[in-house]
Amino acid sequence: MKFLKELATAPPTAWFGMIVILVYVIVAVFADIIAPFSETEVVGDLYLEWDQTYWLGTDQLGRDVLSRLIYGARNTVGIALATTILSFLLGGTLGLIAATLGGWIDQILSRIVDVIMAIPQLIFALLLLTVFAGRAPDINLGFTSIAGASLTLILVIAFLDSTRVYRLARAVAMNIVVMDFVEAAKLRGEGLGWIIRKELLPNSMAPLVAEFGLRFCFVFLLIAGLSFLGLGVQPPTADWGSMVKESATLISYGDITPLIPAGAIALLTVAVNFVVDWMLHRSSGLKD
């Protein structure tokens, strides 16, 4: 009820963001139904113009661009989402543990994170992707399968990005750990698990949820960037970053095809950022 009330006061930018996110989710979930052709099927000649059958034409192998765009929603967003969740599980857990235990565990974890963060993320990602390229097997999760290259990508980026989650989770938890109720729980003799689950987590959800949005955007853009460089998601998986790369040359002829997947990426990040901005604004009580 309270949530609905706050929803009603959301600014237009936040509404715009929420609607866009909803549309993306629907497209990603029902890609099979919505897409006119399959993800990898060669349906016609190369580089066909936009027409009634191929609304956005065909690509360099003669695949339907619109269909690939639709499947791309599932792949690109799915990979970024999986990465962000993994990064939060890893970084969040470690950050909360470091804040609660303090002492040498906190020192060691924090120094490791400092070192990893001393290397720019994109550069480190390139380095690790070179090293681990082609090492991960394709896996099948039953409901979906992940190509080896995508798996490597997810693991590498989740690992690198978890450092930032660690810092935030630790900082947020540090503010709560100093509260007397946590001290009371420690003095009662409660274990680490209880303190994290019952005392820290319920009180740190708001900033962590907002951060999830921001990290998602960041990861999403990083993966798109890597795919654009040809070092992220690998063919034949339909992916927006790779689609931009594959059609990049067309731009010189005034064809806006490469701008469409790029715009799809931009639109989603804008949408998420608008929603997060509203959430942060609200939780900070107008103080900016």
Binding site: V244, A248, I251, P258, A262, G263, T269
Partner: peptide, 12 residues
């Protein structure tokens, strides 16, 4: 908005 744009989008 600009923060949300991938570099290559701005470039193109």
């Amino acid at each position: 908005t600009t923060i949300s744009f991938p570099e290559f989008f701005v470039a193109y």
